[in-house]
Design a protein around this nucleic acid. Structure first.
Length: 473
RNA sequence: GGCCCCAUCGUCUAGUGGCCUAGGACGGAGGCCUCUCACGCCUCAAACAUGGGUUCGAAUCCCGUUGGGGUCACCA
């Protein structure tokens, strides 16, 4: 068996979206598992819609996810260039070959003429098919405005065995002579993809199942060109909650949006992999495990609904599993955006405290900043309920306790507070809650005693004092 | 509409003819733990779309129906 060569071939007409990312992921996984080659090819033949910003956005998305490519933009390789618009000569040569073989021909029918016929057919509720007007006219190379059409066989059928969908057969009478090369030499999708997959020696094509209809046509082109046909794997669509194909209407669909929303790339990778693929009952997979365990047998054939809540859960799981230094690195830009330049050593001590109660990095950052600021802003409702003349004596005693024993560590502080509560005939919660509000401004926080210790003596006392004076009286 | 694909809890899925009284996960409900919030743990509710076959036996194989999706460009 020849070495595995797979590719992800996005068209740069927007950001890298969830569906594209999953296609890229499955290709990447297969390449890495088989020690093959993963190629990134930019299909920028739609000159109207392709932009360099989109190319950059796709590259950035891939990099953030850790889907590194062995050949493609930036790394090049033996089949460079990897932008289709830079490969025009190759398509022209292939098209000429096809014409010489009688498998394609030049055509001067205008789009306007054809659109008219199409409209007419629609009005009469008939299917439209290119009538083959130019099939045998022998229009020569160089004719102004001439496109190249592929000549589809009139009879018979083409079948292939898809790795996820199984046997798929298409009758040739369903096919029509489609344009493969525009007058300006820019290829259309089916042709460009085939020529590139051939020249780049692609062995397996994994893409969205919206391409199933294209596959028989492409197979016919491989055959006409005299090349071996790769294996195909058509991945089911990703749907929104309304079971419609996932789109902007469904909210966040850009991979980089998830980065900005505080998701870990491993979490998104994990989620995307499990959406359409499974390995028994296992839910959590590191990228390494994915590479090790991925297989086509367990890729499902059913379209899947994107479930943001499960992704959120996975993110939380990955926050808990990510090594602290790595987590700190992910957090750094978020903290910087909040005006905090965190001392690494201190941050490392704080992380374990907030890690358990955050589902995203954004939530974590929001919980961390209080440790690096002086003073606190009070949640009105929390203050009103907990910072009252009744709790003032408690706060004063708590202050004394903190002043005396904070140096002994969190367990000692806790013992002291339990003592205090017992003396007052109260539960620990009754004493701790006002102090929590005093120190954090809210009723929700990491464990109080650890929080105090991490805040340090001076800041803890300052905050308690501020709370007491807020009560006044 | 033609053609193609798909069909297990609300969602992601396990299941490849007997191990299925259909398993896991998210979400939901209840509980335990507890200084708050989380985490964790326990329990519960929740599905084989439908009708025919094939077979000793079907969630698993075949056919129809229904439902959903895709595609019908000089877009990809």
């Amino acid at each position: 068996m020849p070495p595995v060569r797979v590719r992800f071939a996005p068209s740069p007409t927007g950001y890298l979206h969830i569906g594209g990312a999953r296609t890229a992921l499955f290709n990447w996984l297969w390449a890495r598992k088989e020690k093959g080659t993963f190629i990134l090819r930019i299909e920028d033949t739609d000159r109207e819609r392709s932009t360099t910003q989109s190319v950059q956005a796709i590259l950035d998305g891939m990099k953030w996810l850790g889907l590194d490519w062995d050949e493609g933009p930036g790394v090049e390789g033996p089949h460079a260039p990897y932008f289709q618009t830079q490969r025009l000569a190759i398509y022209e040569k292939s098209a000429d070959e096809l014409i010489a073989k009688g498998r394609a021909y030049r055509c001067v029918c205008t789009k306007e003429e054809l659109d008219k016929l199409r409209e007419q057919a629609a009005k009469e509720k008939r299917g439209f098919k290119y009538p083959g007007t130019c099939r045998d006219r022998g229009i020569p190379k160089g004719t102004k405005g001439a496109v190249v059409r592929f000549r589809m066989p009139d009879e018979g059928a083409t079948a292939f065995r898809d790795l996820v969908k199984g046997e798929i057969t298409t009758q040739h009478k369903e096919l029509q002579d489609e344009v493969i090369l525009r007058a300006d030499g820019v290829p259309l999708y089916n042709f460009g993809a085939v020529v590139d997959d051939v020249t780049m020696e692609i062995t397996l094509v994994a893409r969205g199942d919206d391409h199933i209809v294209n596959t028989p046509r492409q197979i016919l082109m491989y055959q006409a060109l005299g090349y071996p046909v790769p294996v195909f794997a058509h991945l089911p669509m990703i749907l929104g909650a309304d079971k419609q194909r996932l789109s902007k209407r469904h909210g966040a669909v850009s991979v980089l949006q998830y980065r900005d929303d505080g998701y870990l790339p491993h979490a998104l990778l994990n989620y995307l992999a499990r959406l359409g693929w499974s390995h028994g009952d296992q839910e959590i997979f590191s990228p390494g495990e994915l590479v090790e365990k991925f297989d086509w047998e367990h890729v499902g054939a059913t379209a899947g609904v994107f479930n943001p809540e499960k992704l959120l859960w996975l993110d939380q799981q990955w926050i808990k599993r990510t090594p602290l230094p790595e987590l700190a690195a992910h957090l750094e830009p978020l903290l910087a955006a909040r005006g905090v330049k965190a001392d690494p050593e201190r941050l490392r001590n704080i992380l374990p405290l907030v890690l358990e109660r955050a589902k995203t990095l954004v939530e974590m950052a929001d919980q961390i900043v209080t440790f690096f600021r002086t003073g606190v802003s009070f949640d009105e409702a929390a203050a009103k309920k907990n910072l009252t003349p009744e709790t003032r004596p408690l706060l004063e005693e708590a202050r004394k306790l903190v002043a005396e024993r904070i140096g002994e560590g969190a367990p000692a502080l806790e013992a002291g507070f339990r003592d205090l509560a017992a003396r007052k005939g109260l539960g620990l919660g009754k004493v701790a809650q006002p102090v929590r509000v005093a120190v954090t401004g809210t009723t929700v926080s990491p464990p109080l005693f650890e929080t105090l210790v991490l805040l340090g003596r001076d800041e803890s006392l300052a905050r308690i004092d501020a709370a007491i004076s807020r009560i006044g009286g």
